[in-house]
């Protein structure tokens, strides 16, 4: 188990490193001239050269990457070319927003997909149809469209929940909950649909398995059969799907944050990306990939816990 964990963490670090390197290379090879954008079209040549030297852009690519990496390992992700703000500080401020909605969406997905999937597998009939329909809708309607509809209908027309803005948990727990409900809900629709479909499918398969019939032949209760035995065996496959969906959630946060006017990492990514602000883009990419890696390792641990074939020889 320890060996497994160490290997997964090492693989995760490699992933972060590869992605960081690729991103840096891409940003470095950019056709546009970032310095010109920063100093403006009217700036003189001297101003451009000075800015270039100030940002270290006159040095070779490998040297720049070496500097960035050395700083990053020490927790310093540099500062924004445009605002001059420290990337680390800015991400520290914005991470709670993104984490709140992404993790809430993950939790929602896990719980609702299990409930819906199990109910559809056991009851079949109309409920099954509803889950199938939801799966198609969840696939077809992108999260930002759901977000737009929620924002307009629930946020603006009905006014039940705030349509914009984020309230830190420290300020008001209920305000925090209200401010993340709509974003998390719209973000999770797709993941709920996909995962519920998988839960349903594996539950149906497991309920048809020989060992379920044998357990039934021993007269154990239907509840134990469903929730102790069948769900346990259906869970690993669902977890795999959920892990994949989580990656989509992180990406979806970028768009959903825009709709709800949340000042999270996603909106940071959008603005930095369109400006070509390399230090900020690098910071965002590293933090998001790291988030995916951490959650995936946790899911792998859960998978191992659920599946004895992985855990013991």
């Amino acid at each position: 188990m320890i060996v497994f964990l160490v290997r997964r963490i090492a693989a995760g670090l490699v992933l972060v490193l590869v992605i960081a390197t690729t991103t840096f290379a891409l940003m470095g090879l950019t056709g546009s001239d970032p310095v010109r954008q920063i100093v403006g079209q009217t700036a003189t040549r001297q101003q451009v050269t000075a800015k270039s030297a100030e940002l270290g852009l006159d040095q070779p690519f490998v040297v720049r990457y070496g500097h960035w990496l050395a700083d990053a390992v020490h927790g310093n992700l540099g500062s924004s070319w445009f605002s001059g703000e420290s990337v680390t500080t800015s991400l520290e401020n914005k991470l709670p927003v993104t984490l709140s909605i992404v993790l809430a969406a993950l939790l929602l997905s896990a719980v609702l997909s299990t409930v819906l999937g199990v109910a559809a597998a056991v009851r079949r009939g109309a409920l099954d149809q509803v889950v199938q329909l939801l799966a198609v809708l969840g696939f077809a309607v992108p999260s930002f469209l759901v977000a737009l509809v929620f924002a307009v209908v629930i946020g603006v027309d009905l006014g039940w929940l705030p349509a914009t803005g984020y309230v830190p948990f420290a300020d008001s727990a209920s305000g925090w909950l209200k401010s993340i409900t709509l974003p998390a809900l719209s973000l999770s629709v797709g993941a709920i649909a996909a995962t519920a479909q998988q839960v349903r499918g594996s539950m149906v398969d497991v309920l048809r398995a020989d060992y379920v019939r044998t357990l039934r032949s021993r007269g154990i209760s239907e509840r134990s059969l469903l929730f102790r035995h069948a769900l346990r065996n259906a869970a690993p496959a669902a977890l795999t799907v959920l892990a994949l969906q989580f990656i989509g959630l992180v990406g979806g946060a970028v768009v959903v944050e825009k709709v709800f006017g949340l000042n999270g990492i996603g909106s940071e990514a959008t603005s930095a990306g369109s400006q070509g602000d390399t230090p900020v883009v690098m910071g965002v990419v590293v933090v998001m990939v790291a988030l995916v890696v951490v959650v995936n390792i946790l899911m792998d641990l859960a998978y191992g816990w659920l599946n004895p074939k992985v855990r013991v020889g």
């Binding site: 992933l15 590869v18 992605i19 991103t23 891409l26 940003m27 090879l29 950019t30 056709g31 546009s32 994949l244 990656i247 989509g248 992180v250 990406g251 979806g252 970028v254 768009v255 990514a269 959008t270 930095a272 990306g273 369109s274 400006q275 070509g276 883009v281 965002v284 990419v285 998001m288 990939v289 995916v292 890696v293 995936n296």
Partner: peptide, 20 residues
């Protein structure tokens, strides 16, 4: 596995800001 672990929209953001 590496490609699947990266949120697609982030990669696209980077590519678009770098290449146009």
């Amino acid at each position: 596995n590496l490609l699947m672990a990266v949120p697609a929209i982030i990669v696209l953001l980077v590519v678009m800001s770098a290449v146009g």
